[in-house]
Design a protein around this nucleic acid. Sequence first.
DNA 1: GCAAGGTC
Length: 995
Amino acid sequence: MVKLFCDKIRRLLILPPFFKQIMPRNASSYKVLNVAEKNDAAKRISDMLSGHQFQRREGFSKFNKIYEFDYYMLNKHCQMIMTSLSGHLLNYDFVGNYRKWSSCHPLSLFDAEIEKSVTENMNNIKKTIEKEIRSCQALLIWTDCDREGENIGFEIIDICQNVKPSISIYRAKFSEITERSVNNACRSLAQPDRRTSDAVDVRQELDLRIGAAFTRFQTLRLQKVFPQVLSNKLISYGSCQFPTLGFVVERYKAREQFQSERFWKIEVTHTQRHGDEVDQMQVTTFSWKRGRLFDELACKVLHENCIEPPAVAAVIDVNSRPRSRWRPVAMETVELEKLSSRKLKINAKETMKIAEKLYTQGYISYPRTETNIFPKDIDLRRLVEDQTQHPIWGDFSQRLLELDGGPTPRNGRSTDKAHPPIHPTKFTCSLTGNEAKIYELITRHFLACCHRDAQGHETTVEVKLGGEKFSAQGLMIIAKNYLEVYPYDRWNAKVIPVYNVGDEFEPTDVKMTQGATTAPPLLTEADLISLMDKHGIGTDATHAEHIETIKNRMYVELTNDQRFLPGELGLGLVEGYNMIGYQMSQPDLRAELEADLRKICEGNADKDQVLRHHIAKYRRVFEEALSKAEKLDEALSVYFGTASQVNCQVLNPSEVSTSLRPCPSCGKDMIIKRKKDDGFMVSCMGFPQCRNAAFLPKSVISINVDESVCGVCQPRPVHRVRLKLDSRNIPSYFDSEQVACIGGCDEDITNILGIRFKASEGTAQSQNGQRHYSRHNQNNHRGEQGSGSRLSTIRGGGRGAARKRSASGKRKMSTSVANNADTGLENDIPECNCGVRAIELTVRKEGPNHGQRFFKCSKTNRGCGFFLWADAPVRRNNRSTSALTENQGHSSTTSGVTYSATCRCSLPAVHRTVHREGTNKGRSFYACSKPRENGCGYFEWADQDNSKNSAGASRNKENLIGNDTVSRPSARGRKPPTCSLCHEGGHTRRGCPKK
DNA sequence: GCAAGGTC
């Protein structure tokens, strides 16, 4: 009772202004929704702000209660509603088919649309917040004051603004959850920091895109290449797990490459009676000041000097000084993990699991902390008092309380401004097993940290023998202090006799010994955590998880003495990427990102620029990895045997491309996909909501998305494609291999492929910026649109509209061959020899007819062979080629003379250029426009003097060379033969006179 | 089936 009263008095003394702040509940009319990052924080903050007068009720989530109390702030009486989340509420993921491994190319994940949505088990928390905010006028964010906390704060804001756009928003800034700190936060309310939150968005997006792309690529490929070993393995990549693996591999390699060296040294021993005791001898060993020599002969020479008579050692210096052994610094998570692993042999994952359990049971403080500084107002005395009951360290605790100044912790320099160092919060001696060990470690560490450094006295004696110097040290421990409670540190006393400067003695022995350097040992878990911590890989809360991941993935394994050894898969992956040319397992990439994230927080970098930079960087690496993937196979085949041959384009069963274009109907990406019958189709990623698709004809042998983008087609970006067509099924004037746009601007290709994308009414969305709100490479990233746009991801606002449009697109989608209604020439279109309306095309080839329009049979293969220049007179219902007899044919100017070329079929000849290597490369020629097997074989060089052949038909006969005009020219079209024996013209080898 | 970050 007395203690309770004292507590109250003390609180009032500490916080006199707040006494008046606690008002009767009914007095408040201004309602404020307070949201903390976790229930524990919400409860503690409520307890402190309310002076322990809060009321508790249930929300939708059984883990996240609602606390109510009255409080005076913002110059008014406030009715405070406090609830909490459980960490992040939202999570990024890909949209639609991008989530499916087999439905998109991993490369497309660098651009694929992503969205934030509520994590499934967080729905109840969201419902609570949505319900509570309705009756509130203000929102006060109490998430942890770190980067992630700021981002979580904006998740809360998004939800609340969605329900109540006019809500007033405040941010509580606090460095620890203490009465002083939380009350101060209420007196100096701030605004949430968008830049810090943006930095987290950037990290989240990059982690998702890079992790998913590389994981799918590695897994899909290597499962096929090494089916016997890896068929069921998930081969993941992550920006934290890979550097963690890299540390293990690096140490392993250092050991493998280590070359042991022999060395030699000299050691002097001096044995003398211990005090007055006759039978107790004391041996003092003096170490060589040179340490060791790697030259045996040199060591031998010096050793001989030492043993050369009279071989008397002279004491040249005696130095005596106080020595301290420092008590441990207040415990942060990384230290707990390392100590537990080293001293208790409990791995980090298990340690954190136990620590979390102890925390939830109230035995220890929050175990995920980067703080090693105790807050000034923490009641250390009470915490130590608790421990005085303990049978083992109870007495030590009592002595600690009786020290001058009481408990004085040794603080470090880091703080996460959210949690205090790890310390016991409640006495217990009923725990068992590892739980008891972890509690003991935390408690002993806390008591040791609050005690005093150990004190000792060190004496160093230096002697000279044969010109060489040697020294010996002795240690006398004066006060063990913290060491009494801290068995994890050792500080051994070492007694040496008294020596005085000027003393001389005859050494008992002067030995030359031999040794060899040894390889660095494999990493322990504690070493690994230290390296991760040093290089900023992961956080205190995730170190253990990353280590666990690389163990689960079989990248590493543990030796009998619990050291990390890389497995074959881990070694192969690291070596494979090194062979490709990228040090994927080095921590630098992550460190560079961390540096950029700091710049975003500081306002020194633009989040979109950082995002673009890193995505572009990783995309380059990824493309390189794709193109050199066989190197990965090669590296792994060292361990897994011969690699199975796989088509490097085949990354997954459906053979899918990167984004070809935005869907004109719904705005989502359209990709090229292989059909079951081996043909190709262009398909919308919005399937099945959007069924916009186009099926390509059999004449398409291969089609790949090119990097180049069409400058005409909308909505942008519409990529060109690298096409390979079956020359037997296309008009002969048409290049079978080309880079072309199939977005609609090129009517030739559009009509030949019979492809047209249908746009719905919603096409305009691509121009109003909604579709790409979350795509990194569009300059309208969600953050720039304010929190309202972010919210649309939760409620499906902006994107919902797109989905509706998808539905309409489904109905309107057409894959039919385009007609010419939009050309305005419908009435002038002739019928071909098949009796159907011809199609109008434009000459694409560079040459005299470039840009000219013409009609041809509409069938995708050659059809009937009908051809007519668009500016030629049209004869309707023309079922013969008579219309074409009037045509002008191709015309060209050579030597200033214009002429027309017509082939023997009386068709206008086509103008082409020789591409094949050889003497005629670059020459242009005219040839029959029909497919080779049906044509007349007409051929004529364009640079020959054709002026005398004004009549095409008569000239044709002289220039006929058969069907094969370029690759295998026939005798009539050739130059005179050149003999392969004498190299003279006019005859062949067979008729060579020199034969 | 993918990341890393919160949290229970």
